[in-house]
Every structure is written in structure tokens, then in C-alpha cells.
Design a protein around this nucleic acid. Structure first.
Length: 207
DNA sequence: TATTCGATGTGCT
DNA sequence: GCACATCGAATAC
């Protein structure tokens, strides 16, 4: 088994849009009892502390969004639509109120476990091509809220960085639709499907 | 294949 | 009481 080296906290304590973009291609690793789950991050969304009306942090600190205001490198998990969890990575400095939502990953290790947790998935990409699906496949729930990504049972590590990326409006929100805060890897079949691709912009990663 | 819609729990007004 | 960073079944074509 590979000895994964966690990204350090200074990776997360930067501008949220930069972190959201650079998270593409990174590997998420979850250590379970005698098992390991890994996957490549292929789709993210930024939720900033800069006058972003769609961000949970927008109204200020509450019991739910408290972790968003902590220092970059923490996990923010919340429950949504009565059924699903969403996994976010807190960014920037303490008090800032910002995070990146992980919307989709490409499974690498532990696919047998993911299939057991998502028996309805007919093809591999249905295991993790959406924020709720990813959390279900990885067994992520509210107990991970507030976890430290640099020293716990979930870490990120370096992966590929040479793919093209696409920027678009965020999915499933009403407010802040004008902001191009969604990032995903071009032509990757694990990206969550959605209708409007007409506002997307193509960029080469690293610019 | 594309679009609509119901289920569901919790945070916040 | 209502909105909600979703999913998947049902419906319409």
C-alpha cells in the first residue's frame, strides 16, 4: 500500500477560488478498518466569504456553518434535502467563512466497498458523480464535521495536474448564479451531469 | 433522451 | 413554515 503524504495546511489557507481550482486532480484518501478508499477529485465549487449570497457563511456564524469560519484545512459536512450529506473543505484564515464543495470524484481504490454502499449504481461513474453520491460511497456523515484534513483518517495528497479544466456557474443554487465558481476536469465522465454547458469557459490548468 | 417531481430532515425566519 | 450546495423514479416525448 502506498504511503500517502497529506497536503499541508498552507495549501488550504489561500484564496478559495485558487484552492477550488487546484483541488482538481488531487487524491482524496480515506482510511477505514483494514481498508482504504481513494479517488481523484474531478469537480469542485467555491463558496466564499466575499459577499457570496449562495454561501452558507453569508448570514454570519451559526451553529451549522461554524466550521466554515475555522482555519483552512478542516472538513465541513452538512445534511441537505433530508437525504444527503455534502463534503466541503474549509479554506483561508480563521474567521473568513469559506469552503470548497467536492461535487465529484473518480474512484480508484475501494470500489468494491463503494458498490456495496451504493447498490443502485448501474455503472461505475454513478458511484460518485454528485456530492451526495460521493458522500454515500465514501461513508461520509456528520461525524466528520470539523475533522482536520492534515492529520486524520481523511487526507488529500498530490495527483495528476495536467488536465484541462472548465469553469461554469454553480449547480443547484438560485442566488449567485452569475458567479463562475464551479470547476471541473474537461471530458471526465465522473463529473456530475448537467444541462447548461453554454456558459462554460475553457482554460488550461495551471494558468 | 429530456424533463418533471416527490421524498426527506434540519436550519433559520 | 419554508427553503434547501440532491437523488432517482416517473413521466413525457
Amino acid at each position: 500500500m502506498i504511503n500517502y503524504k497529506p497536503l499541508k495546511q498552507n495549501f488550504y489557507k489561500r484564496d478559495t477560488l485558487t484552492v477550488a481550482k487546484e483541488l482538481l486532480g488531487k487524491i482524496i484518501v480515506k482510511f477505514e478498518k483494514e481498508k482504504i478508499l481513494t479517488g481523484i477529485i474531478v469537480e469542485t465549487e467555491a463558496y466564499t466569504g466575499n459577499n457570496d449570497p449562495a454561501s452558507h457563511s453569508y448570514p454570519g456564524i451559526t451553529e451549522r456553518n461554524r466550521v466554515m469560519f475555522e482555519e483552512g484545512g478542516k472538513i465541513y459536512v452538512y445534511f441537505v434535502y433530508g437525504n444527503h450529506f455534502c463534503f466541503n473543505i474549509v479554506t483561508e484564515s480563521k474567521g473568513f467563512g469559506s469552503a470548497v464543495l467536492i461535487r465529484a470524484i473518480e474512484p480508484v481504490e475501494g470500489i468494491d466497498i463503494m458498490k456495496k454502499r451504493r447498490p443502485k449504481a448501474k455503472v461505475i461513474y454513478e458511484l460518485t458523480n454528485g456530492p451526495g453520491k460521493f458522500c454515500s460511497a465514501f461513508g461520509i456523515n456528520r461525524k466528520y464535521n470539523g475533522y482536520d484534513l492534515t492529520s486524520g483518517s481523511i487526507i488529500l495528497t498530490n495527483g495528476k495536474t495536467d488536465a484541462d479544466i472548465i469553469i461554469s456557474p454553480r449547480i443547484g443554487i438560485e442566488k449567485g448564479n452569475n458567479l463562475l465558481y464551479r470547476f471541473f476536469i474537461r471530458d471526465n465522465k465522473f463529473v456530475s451531469r448537467h444541462k447548461n454547458n453554454k456558459y462554460t469557459t475553457l482554460l488550461r490548468k495551471g494558468i
